Simulated scan of single mutants.
Amino acid sequence: MTTPNRRPASPSGPAIGGIPVPDSTLAREATELIRDVTDDLLYHHSRRVYLFGAHHGHHQGLDFDPELLYVGALFHDLGLTGKFRTSQQRFELDGADEARAFLTARGIPEDRARLAWEAIALHTTPEIPHHMAPEIALVSAGVELDVLGIGYDTLPTATREAVVAAHPRPDFKRRILHAFHAGLAHRPATTFGNVKADVLDRFEEGYTRPNFVRIIEDSPWPE
């Protein structure tokens, strides 16, 4: 018996570091799409996000849909790619919208597709995702481990080495910051209220960080 509103377990391909990787038609199509539109940096990063997130989920005994987690991980940085260089919404929303469209076009119910949307839309918002559905929490956990190193010491060395061997991260810190900058420089206002404001503060000449207190004080209200 399956959990209500949860898809049956999807087929898995060869595991990486003991972590099963979905090998359904949907997962293969997602891989092909992301491989075609991202460079090695974002592709390998996104696969690591899935692997680290799934490992965390298995370790915590969470009941999650591997396909939704996989799509959420693969699409989470899609908004940083060239396709969205004229977009004026948050890059997280670009990727979230694309993931939801991808899933619903393949017959995934809207309530399930929305989990992937929320996972991507919230992956730069600290803490809140970890109190939501497992698929949402685990995308954030994977991102936090791969980008920020949160949980690095709790990941078995053999697992970490196997994941990085399959999906290398040469000069990753410098290159991912460059990718963030390139994807955000044309829409600086969208970084207000999330961690990406730090990127433009560091790398964008002339950038002035919006200040929440000043916005309140300068609002048109007389008092």
Results as ranks from 00 to 15, higher is better:
E135F: 05
F102P: 08
K196I: 00
V49P: 03
D218E: 15
D94T: 06
T86P: 01
L80E: 02
V147A: 07
M132S: 12
L33C: 02
G72T: 07
H44S: 10
K196Q: 12
E144R: 08
A179V: 05
T124S: 11
E135D: 09
E223K: 08
D171A: 15
H178W: 07
P210S: 08
L115F: 07
V139H: 08
V143L: 07
E144G: 12
L184M: 08
G57P: 00
A121I: 13
V164E: 15
T25D: 15
N194R: 01
P156Q: 03
P222R: 13
E127D: 15
R35W: 03
G142N: 10
Y43S: 11
L69D: 06
R6C: 04
P20D: 12
I150H: 13
L74S: 01
G17Q: 05
T38C: 14
L184G: 03
R48Y: 07
R6S: 10
P126Y: 12
Y70E: 00
R35L: 06
A30R: 01
G53V: 07
T3P: 01
L115Y: 02
G149K: 06
A179E: 11
T191A: 05
G79E: 02
P20A: 07
I120D: 11
A197L: 01
A73R: 00
A113T: 05
V213L: 15
N211K: 06
A141R: 13
N211S: 12
T157K: 13
R106S: 03
I120R: 10
A185L: 03
G149S: 04
R160W: 05
R214Q: 14
R106C: 02
I34E: 07
T154R: 11
R90A: 12
A30P: 00
T25Y: 05
G183F: 03
D40C: 02
N211A: 14
H44T: 11
H178C: 05
D153E: 14
D63T: 10
I120Y: 14
H123A: 08
R28H: 08
D171S: 09
L103A: 00
D36Q: 12
P222G: 02
P20C: 07
H123N: 13
V163Q: 10
G17I: 10
F192N: 09
T208Y: 03
D94S: 15
Q88N: 04
L148D: 11
L200V: 06
V164R: 15
G18A: 11
D39S: 09
R114D: 13
